[in-house]
């Protein structure tokens, strides 16, 4: 289980995160942010594996990824 959070106000809607997400769970939201872009968002967070490919691809350092690790 992982959590991906977007700094929505800084997202320019370039879709590069969408391109690289192996689970295909990122979409552009219907609403627009203050800059006038449709920001990226994860629709099914429970499917996220926490691979952070989206964050690595994001040119605006908008994404933070936190992964819940199983207790040993």
């Amino acid at each position: 289980m992982a959590t991906v959070s977007f700094r929505e106000d800084r997202c320019k809607g370039c879709e590069l995160c969408i391109t690289v997400c192996p689970e295909k769970i990122i979409v552009l939201a219907d609403h627009i942010n203050a800059m006038g872009f449709h920001p990226a968002a994860v629709v099914e967070m429970d499917k996220c594996k926490g691979c952070a490919m989206c964050a690595r691809m994001c040119p605006d350092v908008v994404i933070e990824v936190v992964k819940e690790e199983k207790q040993a």
């Binding site: 992982a2 691979c51 952070a52 964050a55 350092v61 990824v65 936190v66 992964k67 819940e68 690790e69």
Partner: peptide, 13 residues
Amino acid sequence: MAKVMFKRPAALT
């Protein structure tokens, strides 16, 4: 245990 996989580096403002 939560592990940060990715966050903004400190060397960026």
